[in-house]
Design a protein around this nucleic acid. Structure first.
Length: 786
DNA sequence: GCGGATCAC
DNA sequence: TATGGTGATCCGC
């Protein structure tokens, strides 16, 4: 087989290249395959893209060779061993076969193209593609006759079909029609699974039973319903599981359906001659690999070669292949699907211009942050994606100990990642966030606390967004980017871990061990590569309920195994926190153009109207908050905002009403409160609960320092019979507690009463206090520091 | 946990 | 002139 192939390569090189576009998916039957291949090849030859494809192809060839070699090395004994294992596994998998459910897969026909034709009927019957010169999303069936298809660049498509009409994508339209189809799907399975805008999986077992209809009748009716609702046609496949249903929906496309009965023999017959490429999950590479190494082209052959597959692939891959051979697939309906990552990326003309690349990064960070805030997400793994000018894809990731969501935090870490790659010429940059903090949220609690948690999470997150907005609009210049990229000065911000503030509040029915106050100073800097995982564990320990029962000594022992002391970083940390405060003050001022006019709405208010101005900026904050909230899913439908559901209907009428009321109004439900007000209310609620143990993790970061001092005083008044653990960066917040733990990079550096610590001038705590005094020496020393 | 790869739409 | 964007998963370190 290999020999005949290579001889063809020399005479007709295009045949080795890009079987991608001509691989029969649907509607490509009468295509002059060779002509298409030749044109695609001619158009691509010599381009950077083409060169990269050749590299990739060479890599796959290498992979195939390696696998062949491994195959050849297997002894007869080994083969028979793996065959036995595989046979046993086949029996186990067979035992899981479930023929009790009836699954239907709906797939809209050339969805985007069909929608465009609907809104512009003159396109009917003409070859048309949705997309642009660089990429086509969907081609209608007329265009497919020319070999034009999805994922093909537009300029090649035009070569294949000069009269091809291009229509730009319009996702609003597609979402609208998608919603209409889903309304129909819902009638047959309220829990249907939306696979994309134009696909859905429905468990129609109950409908068939309740209405006494065959699955074929249900499919007919559903497709008719979709057509009546939208004017669009779709295809359906019915089978005992989702994997098969998906294959079936493709068989009589377009506007057709195929029923595979819930019968083992029928399934095995169906699967036997089926090309493996038809199976979802088997793509170009796997197809190639299985064919060239094992001679496998049909699903049936997966079983025949099960022994050798088991020998050469991982257990999970081998299992998947066996399932394909047996026609097995999922039959359950997963209750909730949590989002695991969120990303955005942009392609541009390849460049090595650092200012430009940094600009892109800023945009991406802002977009990502905004998207995350819409779903109230915070993540701790940030991945930078790069595509070089030669189309090579690279990713670089960091996992932080804190969950972040603000654009500054994202940008800070993203730029570090990018900086490490410079100099570099890129044509794409992307940012992805993963490891969201709601993942482990299994902690049930009383509703008051729950509300408070949501309060903190969404409130704080959205509030910071406004600061971003103003600061980027006003004072970010290219010079600034370059400086930041070229120096080692970290642009640090005050990081807030929402999770931290939530957990302690949710949990504290524990008896008080020794009725003493203590304090933690926390260094929030994320770990460099060393021991990141251990650190996050120690961090979690501080805030989890079981920790509260521990003695401080035992905590210290645990924490001290972790990371090296880095006092230098800590000092830097303190300085930068102060910087953050002052820059945030600047932001507030910059809301007023010429110190007089509001940047956002143009209202005029002299600087002497201090309170009024504060109220006014709070109003804008609340306005923004409300918009973010109304943009998200209504809570009544989805208790969490994490369901994968991008499309939601927005109602802004409420917001408009609000706009007419006085900015000074404080809404009873808190929707227009400032961040500081929110923190205050949280604190008040917590204090009213009269807990024996109170954990305040950066609980007053959003109020000004004077107010903070008042609050701290009040907390001491209210908690005289209570153990209070404070995590804070501000010295006054913690100066008069009974015990002080100074933490640096997750490790306890010192542990004693503040008085004792201050006796030693070189203690980390002394240094922090001195630095703090130095910085505040220009103002009044009204904290009574020694 | 990271980075490369594959896959689907 | 010119080959996308988003999300998931797996494998081998």
């Amino acid at each position: 087989m290999a020999e005949s192939e290579s001889s063809e390569v020399t005479s007709r090189p295009w045949q080795s290249y890009h079987t991608v576009y001509t691989n029969a998916k649907a509607g490509m039957e009468g295509v002059d395959k060779e002509k298409v291949q030749r044109i695609v090849y001619e158009m691509s030859k010599g381009s950077k893209y083409f060169e990269n494809e050749e590299r990739k192809e060479a890599f796959i060839k290498q992979k195939i060779e390696n696998m062949r070699a491994r195959c050849a090395k297997l002894t007869a004994a080994e083969i028979s061993h793996y065959q036995k294992v595989a046979d046993k596994r086949i029996l186990e998998l067979e035992a899981t076969r479930d023929l009790t459910r009836i699954w239907l897969h709906v797939d809209m026909d050339a969805f985007y193209a069909a929608v465009e034709t609907l809104s512009n009927p003159s396109l009917k019957g003409k070859p048309m593609a949705v997309g642009g010169m660089s990429m086509i999303s969907t081609a209608n069936y007329e265009a497919r006759k020319f070999g034009v298809r999805a994922a093909m660049p537009g300029f090649i498509a035009r070569k294949l079909c000069p009269q091809l009409i291009f229509v730009p994508t319009d996702f609003k339209k597609y979402t609208y029609y998608s919603d209409l189809t889903r309304k129909v799907f819902q009638k047959y399975d309220a829990n249907f699974m939306a696979a994309s805008l134009d696909e859905g999986y429905l468990d129609i077992t109950n409908v068939c039973k309740e209405r006494g209809m065959t699955s074929g009748e249900v499919a007919e009716e559903l497709r008719k319903g979709v057509y009546e609702e939208t004017g669009l046609t779709c295809s359906a496949g019915v089978a005992p599981n989702r994997l098969l249903a998906k294959v079936c929906s493709d068989i009589n496309k377009p506007n057709g359906q195929f029923i595979l009965p819930n019968d083992r023999m029928a399934v095995m017959t169906f699967i036997s001659s089926l090309p493996i490429r038809k199976i979802g999950g088997i793509g170009k590479v796997t197809e190639h690999l299985l064919r060239d190494v094992f001679g496998i082209t049909t699903c049936e052959e997966m079983l025949q070669k099960s022994g050798i597959l088991g020998a050469l692939f991982s257990p999970s891959s081998a299992d998947f292949f066996l399932c394909v051979g047996l026609g097995l697939g999922s039959t359950n309906t997963p209750q909730v699907r949590l989002r695991k990552s969120m990303s955005n990326e942009r392609t541009f003309l390849a460049t090595g211009d650092e200012a430009f690349l940094y600009h892109k990064l800023v945009d991406l960070a802002e977009m990502l942050s905004a998207d995350m805030k819409k779903e109230a997400l915070c993540g701790r793994t940030l991945t930078l994606k790069m595509k070089t000018a030669s189309f090579e894809i690279r990713t670089r990731a960091v996992t932080l100990q804190k969950y972040i969501c603000s654009s500054e935090d994202i940008l800070k870490h993203a730029s570090k990642l990018l900086k490490a790659e410079l100099p570099i010429s890129l044509r794409l940059i992307g940012l992805r966030m993963s490891q969201f903090n709601e993942d482990k949220d299994g902690t049930p609690s009383d509703p008051t606390q729950k509300t408070l948690s949501n309060f903190i999470v969404s409130g704080v997150a959205t509030g910071r967004n406004m600061d971003d907005h103003i600061s980027f609009d006003s004072d970010l210049s290219d010079d600034h980017f370059i400086t930041e990229l070229k120096t080692d000065l970290p642009i640090d911000n005050h990081e807030i871990c929402y999770n931290d503030f939530r957990d302690p509040l949710d949990s504290n029915e524990v008896s008080d061990p020794n009725n003493s106050n203590c304090l933690l100073i926390y260094n929030n800097d994320e770990m460099e590569k060393n021991d990141g995982s251990l650190n996050s564990k120690s961090k979690a320990k501080v805030n989890t309920p079981e920790m509260i029962g521990h003695t401080l000594k035992s905590y210290e022992a645990e924490a001290s195994q972790l990371v090296k002391i880095d006092l230098d970083t800590m000092n830097k940390r303190t300085n930068l926190s102060d910087d953050a405060v002052s820059s945030s003050n600047q932001n507030k001022q910059s809301l007023w153009v010429d110190d007089y006019k509001c940047l956002l709405c143009g209202i005029e208010m002299p600087s002497s109207f201090v309170e009024e101005r504060q109220e006014h900026s709070d109003f804008h904050l609340a306005e923004r908050l409300q918009k973010e909230e109304s943009d998200s899913n209504p809570r009544s439908l989805t208790p969490k905002k994490r369901f994968i559901q991008k499309d939601h209907i927005t109602s802004q009428s409420k917001r408009k009403k609000k706009h007419k009321s006085s900015p000074a109004d404080v809404a009873e439900d808190g929707e227009n409160w400032s961040m500081g007000q929110r923190q205050l209310v949280c604190l008040a609620r917590v204090l009213l609960q009269r807990r024996k143990i109170l954990v305040l993790d950066e609980a007053t970061t959003l109020v000004d320092t004077t107010t903070d001092n008042v609050i701290q005083w009040r907390i001491r008044e209210e908690t005289s019979r209570c153990t209070v653990i404070r995590v804070a960066h501000r010295i006054p917040t913690i100066i008069d507690n009974d015990l002080v733990l100074v933490l640096d990079e997750g490790k306890v550096v010192e542990y004693d009463s503040p008085t004792e610590l201050l006796k030693n001038n070189s203690s980390a705590f002394s240094k922090l206090v001195m630095e703090f005094k130095r910085r505040s020496s220009s103002g009044n020393n009204h904290w009574g520091l020694p």
